[in-house]
Design a protein around this nucleic acid. Structure first.
Lengths: 228, 228
DNA sequence: GTCTATATGGGGATAGAC
DNA sequence: GTCTATCCCCATATAGAC
């Protein structure tokens, strides 16, 4: 069964009430899907969280799958384009820390989105077949190419670009996806801005140094490394 | 509702048939839970995969939750003890590569276990409240202490130990949990032993160098770093 | 111990009044 | 557009024959 990821687009333009209610439902659905997975979340619990009768959910989104598609679609829009900003012309000593910081902000600001996406992947991405196409493969290749050229130019050490990208993804998303374990390990109930800053700095230091990039001070623009 | 994680222990000693069937069911359940989550997996599909009638599952494991607890319990046993082998007396240049390699082997050999655990954490670990206790916190602190002392002795750079551990966890588990996305990105149907080796080497290089550890050649024992 | 048949509840979806 | 009442299916769990 194929999922229309863009199911929520193409809806007819709407009034204020509709827009408000749809947003209310989407937020509630995001919370429930993140907490219980697709099957585990119920239209009932979503309706309750949104403060609306169950039938209204079906009025705005025809089916549970449509609602899930809308949530997932919003997440993909959010995801797109962060890695796209990296270019071979950039100085990795400048843009890699920025990329790590951006991904960490995502983990802090949109943990639910990150978790829903993660659960979808963990389950084998049954609803993302049309997302993981040859286009995705081509896009990814264009991204690894940036790192490959950096290595070629001696701006970073010769590391496998694909695995470096996976490292960037995994290490940052971990703070959204495994927040519960992290809090348990640290014995905390919250993981605040200061914690996120420490995490960001630690990751940045290790990954940049691990790639042979001399770190520049924040705010300072300096060439990191000129020779191989 | 509290879950008895040790539900499968304390069962009466059993004959060959029971043991064989229980193992059959556990394997089938692991596959289904990993693929569809707790709620998404059905006793029917588990029974079918195990090649047994549904009622038999209930005969061996009273309820679906009991079955899930047994699966989860086996996973925790598997997880325990890998990080325990690290000691402050060790040379991180030797034992960190070994730890990374072990975790990567886990991702390769037990991807289902990794995914079930990940889904449980993603969902807020509702069934692991009795696992993430103060004991867990104390255990984690004892592990960070190892890295802290390494830094104190100048064996590694001064990095936040907790976040270093999270990095080790996230980067290695990623290859089990996000296998589906990785294959899509690489345009492959399989991620073979050679791929795992490349991934392991890349991670090892970046993380060790990122911590200021000079990597020793495989099989060679050499002091990595003597001074601060 | 094994398995068929069934009870029971819950969840997605809809009809139709307002 | 909104919401109550209801339908129908499916999943867990069990009863009880073998």
């Amino acid at each position: 069964m194929l999922l229309r990821i863009d199911a929520h687009r193409g809806r007819k333009a709407v009034g204020r009430i509709r827009q408000k209610n749809e947003q209310l439902i989407l937020s509630a659905a995001e919370e429930e899907f993140a907490r219980h997975g697709y099957k585990g979340a119920t239209m009932n619990s979503i309706a309750q969280r949104a403060g609306l009768p169950k039938a209204n959910i079906h009025y705005y989104f025809n089916s549970k799958l449509d609602l899930y598609a809308a949530v997932l679609s919003g997440i993909l829009e959010l995801w797109d384009g962060t890695l796209n900003e990296l270019s071979a012309d950039d100085d990795p000593a400048k843009v890699l820390p920025a990329y790590i910081a951006t991904k960490m902000r995502f983990s802090r600001d949109f943990p639910l989105a990150s978790r829903i996406f993660a659960i979808e992947i963990l389950n084998g991405a049954p609803n993302l077949v049309e997302y993981f196409t040859d286009d995705y493969r081509a896009w990814f290749r264009s991204r690894t190419e940036v790192f490959r050229r950096w290595a070629e130019m001696g701006k970073i050490d010769a590391v496998d670009p694909a695995h470096l990208i996976f490292l960037l993804w995994s290490s940052t998303q971990h703070y959204a996806d495994f927040a519960c374990q992290i809090k348990a390990a640290l014995g905390r109930n919250t993981f605040d801005d200061h914690d996120f800053q420490t995490a960001t700095e630690t990751l940045t230091k290790i990954i940049l140094q691990g790639c042979g990039i001399r770190q520049v001070q924040t705010g300072t623009v300096r060439n990191a490394r000129l020779g191989g």
